[in-house]
Amino acid sequence: MDNDQIINDLKEIITPYTDHKEALETLTENTDLLIDLKINSANLVDIILDIEEKFGIEIDNDSMTKMINVKETIAVIKEKLAANAG
């Protein structure tokens, strides 16, 4: 799965949790979930649970620590997908 595919899925997952639709439309690897999309930190859990369901992965607490921007989120998803495949 490449980054563009993951970004498309992420946009879909994040949609209900942000009012900043413009920043969501133009979402890139450099987008910060809390600063740019103004996602509430209590809703970050919802996003992480949605990611687990969508990609069929399990995200441990250590991985969750870094998931405040798109770049780290993609890295975690790829790492967990690779672990599943292996």
Binding site: Y17, N40, A42, N43, V45, D46, I48, L49, N61, M64
Partner: peptide, 17 residues
């Protein structure tokens, strides 16, 4: 706002926090 936007009863929610 918290009660409308977050479903704390959702499976896995409490475990993450």
């Amino acid at each position: 706002k918290a009660n409308t936007e977050s479903d704390w009863k959702r499976k896995g929610y409490l475990d993450k926090l």
